[in-house]
Design a protein around this nucleic acid. Structure first.
Lengths: 255, 255
DNA sequence: CGATAGTTTGATATCCTTCAAAACCTGTGG
DNA sequence: CCACAGGTTTTGAAGGATATCAAACTATCG
């Protein structure tokens, strides 16, 4: 039973942040009971929307993105299984960006009310989810560093290092390989590069025996060397498991 | 009395997000009672720290930044008067970045306990602060778009547009001019550019009569033209004032 | 008034983009 | 099972934006 819970990527992810009770885990599992399938390329949430529910990614990849007037696109975050789209979206008037699917995906839509009840009744979950949003922010900051300071080669290396750890956190790596269902164009939109340049960068990595990338599966042959190239310090992912926090008001994520 | 409160940048800022009661305002004012002065160039919080207090900027500019192994620096956010450094810092084990002063500054240090009490006793403040952190995140996303997709000229224009509105929000603009106490080097570290290239970009803007920038004071002569150049859409700053939200559990910022 | 930090300038190198076409997949319908 | 269509990857040649390096110039401040 406990083992079954661990197949749920959300349980897996939050469990790596904090100690979840069996009760918490059962509830999280309940949240992902009814799921919908969506096709790659569709939007889960469009810019300007005021969503009435939170989406939990079960299978597949999604992204936050923005399209500029000139048609340029910037991807600002990847969402992978176990990631929740915008717990806090209830507060702001309208989405200032869109969330789109990078691959076919399976998604659970969690109504606002259910989400709020869960947070109230399960302080452990609230705690873990708040932790998760802080990590999302840290990741965003690191992406800024990545685009701002690293050249294409190290930039790509850094992204790959990050995604390997994030996929591993939810149990989706197999012998150092994991699914990376992205076109070179999408990689370019992520890193502020042209698809042409992404292509040449990937080729260089392949030529150096660093990676294999085919059919949407990435293998990093020597993660240590890759990390050295990227100057990758996993610190910002805050993956270190912590003991449960004793909080005066557990419902208050500011605590 | 009410007028006096409005000289406090924090009151001003939060008041532009939500309706604050006089009681809320008094409390916010109380938070900034005792202040310390710090010199430009010093760190308020170093990477790896686990701060025991929250800092409120009263006067001057600060920034979040990271230094890479090769010595490159990336500035990830500016903090201006009325901004709080890391309400949520209590949760994570250690800071994954530093907060440093870009100018001489006056700062109020708010102990963790005081902060938590304030949030509990003043739901309106908790609400507004949560809103503010969401806006900080939106700003961060927009910086990513800026660095990822715009060339140096538009990138600079966009940053200037943003800072004008943020400074205006806390009442620190005078006839379209505002303090911008940054060296060209620091601007470069912000936008992923060389100080040399920042210099040439600024010169171009000056030559075109777009700006004056001297002695740390920036004047944008034609904000509309500047916005057009940048493709600036202020939406992400979520500056539209909202009516107070009725929340079931006001202490829960997820609501 | 000298010291120090910041700005400006010029010349050159590099990374990355642009454009355009060819090669390669992958799935679909005949 | 083949052929074709559309998207994706790959390749080449050339141009542009930005970096690098080094030096001169200019504020500012004790």
């Amino acid at each position: 039973m406990k083992g079954a819970f661990m197949t749920n990527p959300l349980v897996r992810k939050l469990g790596s942040f904090t100690m979840l009770s069996d009760d918490d885990k059962a509830r999280l599992n309940g949240l992902s009971r009814s799921t919908q399938r969506h096709k790659a390329g569709t939007d889960l949430i469009a810019q300007g929307d005021r969503p009435r529910e939170v989406f939990l990614l079960i299978e597949g990849w999604a992204c936050r993105y923005k399209v500029l007037p000139d048609g340029n696109r910037q991807i600002m975050a990847y969402l992978i299984p176990g990631d929740l789209c915008d717990i806090h979206v209830f507060i702001l008037k309208a989405m200032d960006h869109a969330i789109g699917l990078l691959s076919d995906a399976r998604v659970a839509a969690i109504p606002k009310r259910v989400m709020l009840d869960t947070l109230r009744e399960h302080p452990g979950i609230a705690q873990a989810l708040f932790w998760a949003t802080l990590v999302d922010e840290a990741v965003l900051r690191e992406w800024l560093v990545n685009i701002g300071q690293r050249d294409a080669y190290r930039r790509t290396a850094h992204l790959f290092c990050e995604m390997r750890l994030r996929m591993r956190q939810v149990g989706l790596t197999h012998d150092g390989a994991f699914s990376l269902p992205l076109t070179q164009e999408q990689l370019g939109d992520t890193m502020g590069l042209t698809s042409v340049h992404v292509n040449r960068t990937l080729q260089k990595m392949r030529a150096e025996g660093l990676i294999s990338l085919q059919g949407g599966v990435l293998t990093i042959h020597d993660p240590d060397r890759m990390a050295a190239i990227a100057g990758f310090d996993p610190n910002y992912l805050h993956l270190d498991r912590r003991e449960p926090l004793q909080v005066s008001d557990p419902a208050a994520p500011f605590a």
